[in-house]
Design a binder for these strands. Structure first.
Lengths: 168, 168
DNA sequence: CTAGATAGTCAAGTAGCTTGACCTTACGTG
DNA sequence: CACGTAAGGTCAAGCTACTTGACTATCTAG
């Protein structure tokens, strides 16, 4: 309510790279989640989004999903339980392996993905409008370079147990 | 273990701004938390960091902290309980207001802040080394512009209840 | 054909929030 | 100056998103 007004206190606002990244990431996620819910996907949460980002459009083994998502298999399972209950994905026995299960999007899930893609593009357009095409491109470039550098640092790091590429 | 190796699967890696921001933010936080724990601050967690970022070096009213931190007063209280138990902050009655309490860093807390500042600078130096001074500056500039644009968009947004500047 | 690795499930516990109910203290108004 | 209401804080209970540990079923290598 009066939060903005109060910022004229000498506020020691943090301004380091970590805070800026966090702030921008939070803002993006809030935008995205809000738009998804507005688009009728009330089941959408951040944690679920994180998992969905790893599920290949064509479906995949649950074990492969666990490997990619960098959280415990039990956590993946619980999230999948929820998504299955919401009718976003379905789990089928893997014909190739009696132990395995295949995770696949339902019709409803694919619809949500489509909406998600649209919303991402809308947000991106808004960002470009806000800071300009050039700056936006520079931003993406710097973030990609940073990530690539991170991966490289990991790689050099003799015997570090490989870092999973976390996704959204 | 074999996670990196598996990435040669056709992986549909996401590459939109939201994902890049999230990834970079996560990486930074992991770096920071790891370094803090390595520096002997085992009590350090992300949530606590988020709150500490809002506590002025000189201490402040608990109610002011609640206002700035953009989470419920009960959540703030629980986090403070933890930080107090760890000896990072202390709570004193406010002499000006019988209802209020003052939150203040202890010696240990101030030491942790100092270490935190050092670590932030180290990470930043690493980032600059990774992508170059120029790109790093552009990154910071773009992130700041984005945040400023966000605030402005909020401001225009007739009567939107002011957005708190979340911190870390 | 059996030892052990792999795929998945079930159960219980933790961190970090939330909302709701409550008590105490301050303050503006009639 | 009393009193209704707002503000500051606490206590309790519940939820989400994880975690670790223990277990079952299936596959595969020797």
């Amino acid at each position: 309510m009066n939060l903005v007004k109060h910022l004229d206190e000498k506020t020691e606002a943090p301004d380091h790279i970590g805070w800026r990244l966090w702030q921008a990431s939070r803002a993006w996620q809030a935008d995205f989640a809000t738009a998804m819910r507005a688009a009728g996907h009330g089941w959408f949460t951040e944690a679920r989004a994180g998992l969905l980002g790893h599920i290949a459009r064509a479906g995949m083994r649950q074990s492969a999903l666990i490997e990619r998502s960098a959280i415990s298999k039990q956590a993946v399972q619980q999230l999948l339980d929820g998504l299955e209950a919401e009718g976003i994905v379905e789990r089928l026995p893997d014909p190739q392996d009696g132990r395995g299960k295949l995770v696949r999007y339902t019709r409803k899930g694919l619809d949500a993905l489509r909406d998600g893609d649209r919303i991402k593009m809308e947000i991106e357009r808004r960002y470009v409008g806000r800071i300009g095409e050039e700056r936006f491109t520079a931003l993406m470039g710097a973030l990609r370079a940073l990530a690539a550098g991170e991966a490289a640092a990991m790689g050099e790091d003799a015997g570090a147990e490989g870092e999973v590429v976390e996704s959204k």
